[in-house]
Design a protein around this nucleic acid. Structure first.
Lengths: 190, 190
DNA sequence: CGGCGTTGTTTGTGATCACAAACAACGGAT
DNA sequence: ATCCGTTGTTTGTGATCACAAACAACGCCG
């Protein structure tokens, strides 16, 4: 999810087991779970690797983010008190710091934490789980995409999200979240 | 997914293995996968059962259907040729037959086949997979809900969907699909 | 020099086992 | 009669093993 593994990298059950100091059995169960969520790709011969997503698949996942996340944000809005907005602003400052460090994994992690912190207030666990499944599938790809993006500034849409939250502007919040979710997509064509 | 197992029913790895004539190992893997998709519930002690969904959770899953399925239908619309509509009408007749037979499982199966047949045309595998995950989570509950519903007629919204498809009416299609997806929800309050 | 078969190794699969935790049934004490 | 402790059974977990398929490297032949 955090882009620690590049797309298309092969994994072995024995290797995973060794990395976590367990036998093949727990490694297999974890892999099967991640395959079920689409986070790992299982070839017809049973080998597992991180998915190397096609452009069509990436667009589809971006569409899913654009469908799910505005709904989550909208549901979180009535419950977003000042303490939450303050936490979001703190996280957003952290995003600026990892950008300065050119830390791709850190950037992805902080960005997702920003979104998750907001969506947790939506009190919609099934919907949040779906959104996280999408993030999981996009993880390796986001890391690869981050390389093309030479970010120097913190994400613009996060500021829009914060002001919409403060203003209680539901349509504006939906728009800002949607834009932020699909923002990374633009790099595909280039 | 088809409601063959009522909500809250306990399953054992050895029992599943015996039912499919395999050892515990493949049964465990299958169970872990289904747990990851939310189709089965894993208690803190490791026992597995079909989920007994709260009303809030059911409403959430219905919302997810209402978000995902109109989008799938909309994407399928431009590719929906006459042969597809004909197939959908055939399936819909099958729905009428299982209703006459008071066959809950058959009804759910046919109903989902109707939707899946349409959505397959959307060429959006990730989105369809998400919709099917929702169906999977709702399976046992839908069976329980079917008991309260004394259907004598084929689903009204399916006809609306078919006419919207024939007319190429995209907004009407979205509305009809959304209504059909959330229709079963109304029985909750009663 | 390149294509292809062969061989040795890696890898996933399914079965089995020992173990500990959880559960259920029973019995005794209050 | 009810509560609680005890005991026997059920159940999930993780490890290990045998096996077959897949892969990769090498060498042979054209």
């Amino acid at each position: 999810m955090h882009g620690e593994i590049p797309p298309g990298e092969a994994l072995t059950l024995r290797g995973i087991g060794k990395a976590y100091d367990v036998s093949m059995t727990p490694a297999r169960e974890a892999v099967r779970r991640l395959v079920a969520e689409g986070a790992l790709f299982l070839s017809s011969s049973g080998r597992v690797s991180t998915p190397a997503l096609s452009n069509e698949r990436i667009e589809e996942l971006a569409t899913l983010r654009a469908l799910l996340e505005p709904e989550l944000a909208s549901r979180a809005l009535p419950r977003a008190h000042f303490a939450l907005i303050e936490r979001l602003e703190t996280i957003n400052q952290g995003v600026s710091q990892v950008i300065a460090r050119h830390d791709a994994t850190g950037y992805i992690r902080m960005n997702l934490e920003f979104h998750r912190t907001l969506y947790l207030r939506a009190q919609a666990p099934a919907m949040l789980a779906m959104a996280e499944t999408v993030w999981l599938q996009l993880g390796p790809t986001m890391r690869a995409l981050y390389g093309r993006l030479n970010r120097t500034e913190p994400p613009y849409h996060h500021k829009l999200i914060l002001s919409a939250l403060k203003a209680g502007d539901e349509p504006g919040l939906r728009l800002a979240v949607r834009a932020d979710a699909t923002q990374g997509l633009r790099m595909l064509k280039g």
